[in-house]
């Protein structure tokens, strides 16, 4: 059997399932998704940044800071590619049943662009500028500053000009909709989304 989970020598499906909110069959179904994503440009069973971009934005080209951060957070080994185990680790955070602390932490690391341990005003400005460009939206500088001032007035409780992890936690617990992107409802029903895992499975959950 080509490309079945058992032929992937680096993967221990049972261990991955044990250490994540996924069952073995769900890990197998995610392997089907991983195979699809990891061979979309270079057929090497690794997700390259271009393949992540293609999956998320239907275009393999173009720089984007959010894409860079998502890729960096998935790429735990920092070797420029996402392996299956890293894929499962990161997607675990997005499971509807994952602890909210993990989602809060992931979102914080996502937005801490320079990885200083704080979300700084310049980072927020840069991210807002990126989303405006991405969506062809224009806002006056005055309104932009107002939005960022208001955000920091709410989130930066010690008024030091940057948002610490503790401040971020308090802020998102007050505004839980900010964690919406940290949950993928699809992950609750992944075996239905990728039924082809049935042809490769060796276990029945």
């Amino acid at each position: 059997r080509q490309n079945s989970p058992r032929t992937c020598q680096y993967v221990d499906l049972a261990r991955l399932a044990h250490d994540s909110p996924f069952s073995v069959n769900e890990v197998e179904a995610l392997y089907e998704l991983f195979k699809k994503l990891s061979c979309s440009i270079i057929d090497d069973m690794l997700i390259h940044k271009e393949e992540l971009r293609l999956a998320l934005f239907q275009a393999p080209y173009g720089e984007n800071i959010f894409l860079d951060r998502v890729f960096d957070l998935f790429d735990e080994k920092k070797n420029g590619v996402i392996e299956f185990e890293e894929f499962i680790h990161a997607l675990s955070v997005f499971h509807p049943n994952a602890p909210i602390e993990e989602k809060i932490d992931f979102a914080f690391r996502l937005y801490d662009l320079r990885q200083t341990g704080f979300i700084e005003r310049e980072e927020v400005q840069q991210m807002v500028a990126t989303i405006l460009m991405e969506s062809d939206m224009t806002l006056s500088d005055e309104l932009l500053n107002l939005i960022i001032d208001k955000t920091f007035a709410d989130a930066d409780s010690d008024k030091d000009g940057k948002i610490s992890k503790a401040e971020w936690k308090a802020y998102v617990l007050k505004h839980p909709s900010l964690l919406k992107n940290m949950t993928l409802p699809y992950l609750k029903d992944v075996t239905t989304a990728f039924p082809s895992f049935i042809f490769n499975t060796e276990v029945e959950d």
Partner: peptide
Amino acid sequence: KGSDSPTIINAFQLIGMSSFLDLSGFFEQ
């Protein structure tokens, strides 16, 4: 009239609208 001030979207709501932060794209190809 109007002690109500208009609601201002917060910066992270805006940022969260990026397509690159919506990983459901994985499942929608």
